[in-house]
Design a protein around this nucleic acid. Sequence first.
RNA 1: GCCCGAGUGGUGGAAUUGGUAGACACGAAGGACUUAAAAUCCUUUGGCCAUUGCGGCCGUGCCGGUUCGAGUCCGGCCUCGGGUACCA
Length: 1036
Amino acid sequence: MDYNFAAVEKKWQEYWRNNTIYKVSIDQNKPKYYVLDMFPYPSGAGLHVGHPLGYIASDIFARFKRLKGFNVLHPMGYDAYGLPAEQYAIQTGTHPAITTEKNISRYREQLDKIGFSYDWDREVRTSDPDYYKWTQWTFIQLFNSWYNRKTDKAEPITSLVKAFEQGGSNAVEAACSEHPAFTAENWKAMSEVVQQQNLMHYRLAYLADTIVNWCPALGTVLANDEVSEGLSVRGGHPVERKSMRQWLLRITAYSDRLLKGLETLDWSDSIKDIQRNWIGKSVGGSIAFEVENHAGLIEVFTTRPDTIFGATFMVLAPEHELVKTITTAEQQAAVSAYIQRTKNRSERERMTEVKKISGQFTGAYALNPFNNARIPIWIADYVLMGYGTGAIMAVPAHDSRDFAFARHFELPIIQVVTSQGETLIDTKNWEESYDAKEGVLVNSDFLNGKTVQDAILSLIAAAEQRGIGSSRVNYRLRDAIFSRQRYWGEPFPVYYKDGMPYMLQEDQLPLELPAVDAYLPTENGEPPLARATDWQTKEGFPLETNTMPGFAGSSGYYLRYMDPNNKEAYFSKEANAYWQEVDLYMGGAEHATGHLIYARFWNMFLFDIGLTVKDEPFRKMINQGMIQGRSSLVYRVNPEKMAEYHLWEKLKNKGMGVEFIRDFKDGHRKFDFFSPEAKLIIEVRRVKSLEKLAHPYTEYAQKKGYRMLLIPVRDMLLEKEVVFEKVAALIAGKKVPEFEDKPALKIVPVFASKNIDGRAFFSDPIHVDISIVQNDILDIEAFKKWQPHWSDAVFLLEDDKYVCGWEVEKMSKSKYNVQNPDELIERYGADTLRLYEMFLGPLEQSKPWDTQGIEGVFRFIRKFWRLFFDDNQQLKVSDDEPNKAELKILHKTIRKVEEDIERFSFNTAVSAFMICTNELAELKCNKTAILEPLVLLISPYAPHLAEELWHALGHQDSVVKQDFPIWDETFLVENTFTYPVSFNGKKRFDLELPIDMPVKEIEKQVLGLEESAKWISDKGVKKVIIVPNRIINIVV
RNA sequence: GCCCGAGUGGUGGAAUUGGUAGACACGAAGGACUUAAAAUCCUUUGGCCAUUGCGGCCGUGCCGGUUCGAGUCCGGCCUCGGGUACCA
């Protein structure tokens, strides 16, 4: 009997649960450490082996930190609102809460089997009213706040009102949608409703008409990060642009802090880059242009104000409000037509047609404020209304898009920047624009001779002086659309009075999700909540019918874990002061532009209003890579192609004495094989098809004077020697019937093993379930059972085996390559699964799942076990004093494992365990003094095994509560070092020398060796490089 | 197009600061034990040449450079993966 993992794992999982081993509470005597996994959405499909990868890594780290004396917060919960459960509800009428509950229990069951050290008393679910009360509460705080640019933080809206009362709008610098000018007196004279309308421009949660991503298939609006390439990220449905009244969060107020905060975070550069690009800060200036014969000004945003003398035309977004008024009468029709055309295009069409240049001249001219040049005003949809001012000054010489536009519509191009030492060429002959932000200005009046950087500053200064422009910063980041026309989400704590939104009082929270009769919009197109009866306040005011998006609940869940059962507050001040922030956040990189930005924003806001002690929520983040599937393939033979292949193998390279051409074409006719020398055509086809073609082919051959052989596929496969004889006879000039009609063969599916000759030419790969393939060998009987319609299939084997091909691709049901953790746990145990997932490769890299390799880890676990137990399962440890060699192995391993965990190199730590076990087994070491620390060392990785061994060694308490072993340098020092001796950088032999031997002495020793003489020979020594305790290199 | 990241045996990967390339495992081949199987153990396993012993040559996507020494640093290119896309 071997190590009985099934019984052991069950025993200790129960022990941990019954003794609440992982329960954690505030302990001021210990340093805290917060390890968090990204919130999972419990999907109906359950976990596959890719999901727990990050959970295992974070669990190892959490366990390691516990052993290191930290008070570790390691919670888990569920992002329970989500589209799949609601889509299922729409189809079946099942309440999403029921589906979600079911999925959660399945998830929990799977998670429990892996042996995680979560404190489940802290579980949080976004759909739990006790939790979403605080999501709603935060929304109210956002509504009641504005962003003060002077203090650079969120402040209560009351302070804004006070400022307006005292100094009007000029007294305020705020993040806002609009900033109308009014005096204190104006403000006081406004009606309540007008005041509220004005305040809406400043609130951090606000209601506005905006262009939104409308997804008709899902019946809802989506945020920018929920849309990719014109399709919804979930489901892949087309998205349209539409104007709707929606709640938004003014995340743009935090653009700069979100950007700057990145510098302080211990995140991967790639995630930081993705966030930087998403926020998209660009520094430039805005300049106002007058329009000829028109009162309005057109303000443009540019990052290159220095190139203003090269502006040869101007482009407005088709939606720009001035388009209507500046367009001349002659151009009116053309402009309207263009606007109409761009409006009717879907977002996806617009994106795929990016390379197509389109635009329309308005007939109007703008005046360059610096030289009064008349520049034509165009509209084109390459200028977006949502960015900058929706208008650009086009400088075709120095912007590639403007360049392409100018070339297309034959507009002038003026060079204003030269690169160093450039000889000027007429722009007519340019092939591309010069976009680089370096060089010296020319053709630019007072900017001539200045560098680009200086010219930018000079021009902005000049514009400011004349009051026509200023420096300006723009962000790509948009305010987050916060309304969803869906049922399964948090209700807004909002009601409407006279069309104006008002917040519920805190004591009315949570506003619970009402029951509805169907999870669909109403006939009038209102969201599902409009179906709820009595969806109004006690006073009878209607409640908001939209719900909040998925990211609402996941933006602050990590804070709730600090104090999850608090009824009075989101979390207590004490809990937040103790746990502070997430020290290690483990999760996928796919949340870079969604959750990870929203959560940072949410946290910064709570920091501003004094709720949290940290402005950034996640100190360090590790993004685990994806685990890809390893699909198995069988090869279905195409009989016709196979017959052709075999014949060609015989005919090619004058195999039958004469040259043959393959795929011979004559006019519209095509034949498989043709020999000009023998004037012979050979065609291989199915009998049925030959019967039809025999006549026309024969006619053709007669006309051309060719001879012909029509070979049924069946003949080629069943009796190819006979066919070859016929061909030989024909070549020899003998008479052979052109076509012998025989009954067609019943078509049986044929599968060829991977390495059958020519397989690639005559077969097509088909995915096969990985559970019936072992070490790439197909279980043929299981295959026939799996696909009964292939039960009569014939298999072409190699060495009596069917060898499958394989491919690395996404793990998915349709590819039959999903590996489920439960099956593996049943077969190998959770510890093996944990170890193997780590052993697979670097945590952050994507890698294919390969079940074959798990055997090695399984062997290791049992080998480790056998260090403690003999073949009769008797404990065989001894209390003997360990020797030097054993101590060295132990301490080397402790050091390696600790260093590897610290740098999240879990795969190399597993190797270190293997090496250590191999070495100790070699020495037949069974000493407690060595083995006991090893049990502690391995406990974060294989907690069940470690707990069992720990108790077997006579301990009563849990291995979880112990201390991590400490390595001792003294056991590791060596007296000698084995130098690799190289000649010209090539290693030739080893040389063992005392560790403290001086360099001079080493040189003398090494040069005196007979071995060295061989390599030096007559070339002579040029130089000797000796790096103590590293290498010796001799240059000859 | 732009911005990241990665390319090492049949496979997953190791080499932490420029210092013995291929640790550890899988797979494969051969052997021991066994009536047999499983399990376990032993040997070989980057390629080529030599194999009578010593050995020798090549080799980390490609081309070039720096260096006594490059998988690692620099320049150029190729391929794959991720992000983003008229963002002015």
